[in-house]
């Protein structure tokens, strides 16, 4: 009997400490939600009203009005061009940034921090906020849009590419250094080939994301299909807004298919 007592009679999955911790985390989460619900500036009857309002809006969109379809498709193509040009430029601009932001290739500590600073500031500011700034600078239009997408993409591409550089196989680099090749040639022959697959994958991925982002640039005046959507909404032309939305949906799905195929082909 004494020996049997060594086995506990009841069983619990977690130790009391773990249970206490889990309970506290749970409590904190509930408290956060309650705080948010209690203090948020929302008129609650409106919440109950929301489904009806949405239904009403949706009702006004049906049936979509396709009379302006050719114009819409043309602007849509323009949107694709904005995304593509911006991605292409950003990809090249990101290369030196990735190079100095990778610990194993950066020339010195100052350049490392410069690289990281560029990446962090580019990444933490959303495309739309960049667009807001560049619309203020360049005026409304696609230049602001392209520059905004570029600024955001540099951080994204640079970060992933920098990580790829940090993960390369050091051994071929050592081998080429041993042949007496200069720094630039070592990069060209030992680093570039190793980073190439990531480079393509990241470029395609970012292009796909930029396609989505370029559809909203127009809402802050930075060109593309968003401008058409905004004016349709502003004039309460809901059937046309529906057409624009459908066109955007088609574009994004098509973009996803294209990028998936490209990825398979190239890598």
């Amino acid at each position: 009997m004494v020996e049997l007592d060594a086995h506990p009679q009841d069983w619990a999955r977690y130790t009391p400490g773990q249970r206490l911790f889990r309970f506290l985390v749970f409590l904190a989460s509930v408290a956060a939600v309650v705080w948010a619900v209690m203090s948020i500036d929302v008129i609650w009857p409106w919440v109950l009203d929301a489904p009806e309002q949405m239904g009403d809006l949706f009702g006004r969109m049906v049936p979509p009005d396709f009379s302006n379809l050719s114009d819409i498709l043309w602007v849509l193509l323009e949107t694709v061009n904005i995304a593509t040009i911006a991605t292409a430029v950003a990809v090249f601009a990101a290369l030196p940034v990735a190079y100095i932001a990778a610990q194993n290739t950066t020339p010195n500590i100052a350049t490392l921090w410069l690289g990281r600073f560029i990446l962090v500031s580019s990444r933490s500011v959303n495309t739309i906020i960049w667009a807001l700034l560049f619309v203020a600078i360049f005026g409304p239009g696609i230049i602001a849009g392209i520059v905004a997408i570029m600024f955001r993409s540099i951080g994204f591409i640079g970060k992933l590419l920098g990580e790829a550089i940090e993960e390369i196989d050091r051994r071929p680099v050592e081998a080429l250094e041993a042949t007496g090749a200069s720094r630039l040639k070592v990069i060209l022959y030992a680093i570039v080939p190793q980073v190439m697959p990531t480079f393509w994958a990241v470029s395609i991925l970012r292009w796909d994301i930029n396609l989505r982002e370029s559809t909203v640039l127009g809402l802050v005046g930075a060109g593309g299909i968003g401008i058409v959507l905004q004016s349709a909404i502003d004039t309460f032309n809901w059937p046309e807004a529906a057409t624009v939305l459908l066109a955007i949906l088609a574009l994004v799905i098509l973009g996803e298919i294209v990028s998936a195929t490209l990825r398979k082909r190239i890598i």
């Binding site: 009203d49 929301a50 309002q53 949405m54 009403d56 909203v216 809402l219 909404i233 939305l245």
Partner: peptide
């Protein structure tokens, strides 16, 4: 597929 900004515009119009 829809960027949150587009969704937001629709919801702003609705509610």
């Amino acid at each position: 597929s829809f960027h949150p900004v587009i969704v937001a515009i629709l919801f702003v119009k609705a509610v």
